[in-house]
Design a protein around this nucleic acid. Sequence first.
DNA 1: CCTCGGTGTGGCACTCAGTACCCCCGATTA
DNA 2: TAATCGGGGGTACTGAGTGCCACACCGAGG
Lengths: 223, 223
Amino acid sequence: MRDALVEAAFELFSERGFEQTTIDDIVSLAGVGRRSFFRYFPSKEAVVFPDHDGCLADMTAFLAAADPTGDPVGQVCDAARLVLRMYAGNPAFSVGRYRLTKQVPTLRIHELSVVWRYERTLAGHLRARYAARSDGALRADVIAAAVVAAHNFALRSWLRSGGEGDVGAAVDEALQLVADTWGDDAAGGSGGASQDDEVVVMVARRGTPMWRVLQGVEAALES
Amino acid sequence: MRDALVEAAFELFSERGFEQTTIDDIVSLAGVGRRSFFRYFPSKEAVVFPDHDGCLADMTAFLAAADPTGDPVGQVCDAARLVLRMYAGNPAFSVGRYRLTKQVPTLRIHELSVVWRYERTLAGHLRARYAARSDGALRADVIAAAVVAAHNFALRSWLRSGGEGDVGAAVDEALQLVADTWGDDAAGGSGGASQDDEVVVMVARRGTPMWRVLQGVEAALES
DNA sequence: CCTCGGTGTGGCACTCAGTACCCCCGATTA
DNA sequence: TAATCGGGGGTACTGAGTGCCACACCGAGG
């Protein structure tokens, strides 16, 4: 029944557009009553994202079962990969939906709320794991946002290409940037600077007098 | 006229709730025609965020006028502070709106779309500045998301407290975490780092062997 | 004084999403 | 067979948002 509604909806959406399609059109094509549509989907937009409720539940379960001693950043990255797997499982559907959401403001906004739920789930996991840190909640929010942004960056590139290429590898690469900067084994720096063994490196102009460098180092170490 | 509508709307919203207030209630209280409401606000939700359009324009202008040779991360952090200033400018209004959006799902979703526009604006600026990097677009998206998350973290803490305390300092501290990890002067977060005369200073743990510091400096200057 | 174009506003009617309520049908049980 | 119950259908309603037209105001020009 759900599937019938989704199929009918996408057929009409791709044919005449989202806004030009009414609920009555969908239910008459699916051969069900109008009232039944709202039994399965709370809104017209929700029918475009029929699989995210289950995916969010999967993510929640996955994080609840995660090793409490493992790297939390790695865990939320893996949780994000669950979403990716859902998209990659149905490339044609995902690409069709992407094209739709890209040009319908209402759907873009609805997608934001879907993504937001994932992000809050990830942030909640990180908050619990970072409870000991003084800036734990802040770090949790920032890292969750970064993970979602990296995931979506790679996902959208893939969707924009029409589903060509290896999404998994692209997402791995994108998430690697986040994991490198925020994970337990963070070892990345910015630009040419390198960070190693908790030594963070400064950058100065070529020709900078050494006394200036030392002045800066001293000031920094005194804090 | 806009102000009259906003004032009437918030009076009714705080009195009987958002969903229990109709557009007709608002316009009759404001003493204007129903049609005029939709001339000033595209939706019922938009009246709750009347100042964000102007703020987004300010942010766009600010970033367009930013120094092309400056630290892009610092610039987007400053751009985020523009939003903060708007909130801090009207603490009572901001807190009232926060309480409202917290408990009305429709408004939460609308707020997401508002935040999303800011984030895309920041990301656009960073993308242009990171065009030379191979992972520029990814970095831009991740940093923009991190800046927004940090900003919102501090802002929401302040709003939750009812507008008590120094928001500016809280946001500065939150943004510092992002700037330290992603900015040009990425120099581990003790906050004592100083930037002077384009000399960007590193921070190392006390007791760090000097050869390690020099090694880092050399590597940085070679880039 | 009247006219004209532009602009801001009110009023009316309409579409359509979403909801409350009731009914129908089929299945199970006494 | 009668009673109950649950999933689905139908109907009527509220309210957001839109299109269209009429009206008032206002400065410019005849």
